[in-house]
Amino acid sequence: MAEFINLYLLPGVAVGCIYALGAVGISLIFAILRFAHFAHGDVMTLGAYLAYSVVIALGWSVYAALPFAILGGALASMGIDHVVYRPFRRSPGIIVVIASFGVMLVVRSAIQLFWGVDILSYETGIRRPIPLFGDIRLAQKHIIIIAASVVIAAALHWFLSRSRMGKAMRAMSDDADLARISGIDTEKVVRWTWLIGGGLAAAAGVFAGINTKLHPSIGWDLLLPLFAAAILGGIGRPYGAIVGGLAIGIAQEVATYPWLSELPLVPPAYKNAVAFFVMVAMLVWRPTGLFKGRVL
């Protein structure tokens, strides 16, 4: 039991936090701008590498570098929207998806050019897991990922439920046309959507880098579970995306537990297949997701 919690459930929660932070942006962008943002994984990668540069340049710990990564990811996303996506506001969503392929290529190759393709790490050495109670132990990185995610999610909740802009963002993801005719400054909401979505993605990227290692396709590799989480939670439902992210993260890790025999039920290499099947099952049986999102 302790083994299950230590090696499967808790890491699953940590991975779920990473998915949750990434999926919120995908869900909001999908609902507000009506396209699936395929470059979201690469924004995560960018955040992870920005944090790396701060760690190297200033000698800080990666946790101190996190705010810089978030800021960088937020500003970069808003800049990308301004230069690339804004001219497509009246185009069919699918054209913007293709444009996001272009952004994906540009961001990833820029990262490869600038930081190289070697596998990097924020810190060296191994830290001992911390006993929580009884046999339950928590790896330090998992504690920090989970705690930081809770703080970020609380801040997000405050923003979405208390601030005028946050409410407008929820309004627009509810019904963008109605938002427009109600006199909401939709372009401003769009800019904030990129700031929030990009900042959260950057944080998720840093956590992914802490959880494993840094490499240029770290975000791309997470894109599929992010989409799955956003769809599971319901498009346009930020809280749904958080639940969806946690569910997918936990499901992926727990599926590798040797439930039936000595062998893992799902080989660890096929974790992403779990996300894929959840996604396809939702699309077929309940495309609005668990929390009655929109089908665009």
Partner: peptide, 16 residues
């Protein structure tokens, strides 16, 4: 499914 969803599903199947 509409365009974007097919894109997500097909990219998923390709990765698998």
């Amino acid at each position: 499914l509409k365009g974007d969803y097919l894109a997500m599903a097909s990219i998923g199947i390709a990765e698998i």
